[in-house]
Amino acid sequence: VKKIPLRHSILMLAGVIVLSWITVSPAATFKDALGRTVTLKTPPKRIVSMAPSLTEILYYLGLEDRIAGVTQFSYYPPEAAQKPNVGSYINLNAERIVSLNPDLAIGTKDGNKPTTVRLLEQAGIPVYIVNPRNIEDVISTIYAIGELCGVGKRAKELSTRLGTRVKRICARTMSLKRPLVFLQINIKPIMTVNKNTFHHDVIRLAGGDNMARDEPITYPRISIEEVMRKGPDVIIISSMERGGSFERARKDWMKWSSIPAVKERRVHLINSDLLDRPSPRIVKGLETMARLIHPEVEWGR
């Protein structure tokens, strides 16, 4: 039997070790907001976003080329609307999602049905669930999704910038008197928000006092008489309705001159997308809200 020189044996052994390093890379594991373990063999290349806010986060992180599908109302940025549609975030089309051959789906606890999540997992698709409850959570979620998708460094930089903007607002409003704010989120019937909402967190951080914070219902109906009785200093209308009806809602309040906000002409409109979606734009919503609640502050650009 011909012997293999020792030098050649060492080289062959080294080659086997290197090959094993290349072919047997350890999978990465992540804990989602529900405490579930999500395992990814490699950074995902085909991602299905199961909520409009998640689509915005993926674009913010520069991952638009990896997005394989989005939900209805994923219209920001505008090019997101051109991505394959997988239904609404409440009524997802699981068959459509599977047909897109994703290697990751990202969903939300509020909205996405657990039955759909289970169907996707049974089809072998990893599903990562998020559950942000306030602005701080939104920023943490952006970083977590970046880590999940293999762009942790970029996500850390971007989330840090958002956090800096939030801290700047808080620093400017912390010592100021807190005006009573009525936030109207629906025109007919008139509806508002209690303390268990993103909207409340925005009002609080912007230096305002939410008029309906202690209401027992998350999104209560409020009568004009109740608003007149409580007398808010500022009225802000955030509605998905646009155009004439949106402006008419503001003009309707101007009839009630006994309300301090009306008397001081402090009835404002705000883009509901800046408040309703737990996405990077909620920080812009906070900055806009702070300017409306505290116009006396020199905010700069």
Rank of each mutant, 00 (worst) to 15 (best):
Y76F: 02
I135E: 10
E56T: 01
K83Q: 00
H200E: 07
T108W: 04
V70Q: 04
V38P: 07
P26W: 06
D32C: 11
R266P: 02
A51K: 10
T55W: 04
T218D: 02
D273Q: 03
S257Q: 05
P179H: 03
T116D: 11
L183A: 07
N101M: 03
W21L: 13
I57A: 01
A171S: 14
C149M: 14
N196M: 08
V166T: 06
R66S: 08
R161H: 13
P220V: 09
T197D: 07
P232C: 07
V127H: 08
H199C: 07
E241T: 06
L119M: 14
W299K: 03
L11C: 12
C149V: 11
S9F: 15
Y219D: 01
E287V: 08
S223R: 10
L292W: 11
I145V: 10
V1D: 11
K3P: 04
R242V: 01
L6K: 12
I237C: 00
W299A: 09
L162P: 15
A94C: 05
K109S: 06
S223V: 14
P78Y: 06
L34S: 11
T218V: 10
V127P: 02
G163A: 12
C149T: 14
E296F: 15
D110F: 14
A290R: 14
R291Q: 11
I185R: 10
C170N: 10
Y59P: 00
N85E: 08
I67K: 00
L176R: 09
D110V: 15
S258Y: 09
T164N: 14
D110G: 14
I10P: 03
Q184G: 05
H268Q: 05
Y59V: 00
S25K: 11
K83L: 01
L19M: 10
V234H: 03
I47S: 03
S49D: 03
P26H: 06
I224V: 14
L269I: 09
C170P: 06
V130M: 06
R301M: 13
T218R: 15
N194W: 02
R291A: 11
K195G: 02
W21M: 15
A155Q: 02
R165V: 06
L176W: 09
K195C: 05
D137G: 03
T29A: 12
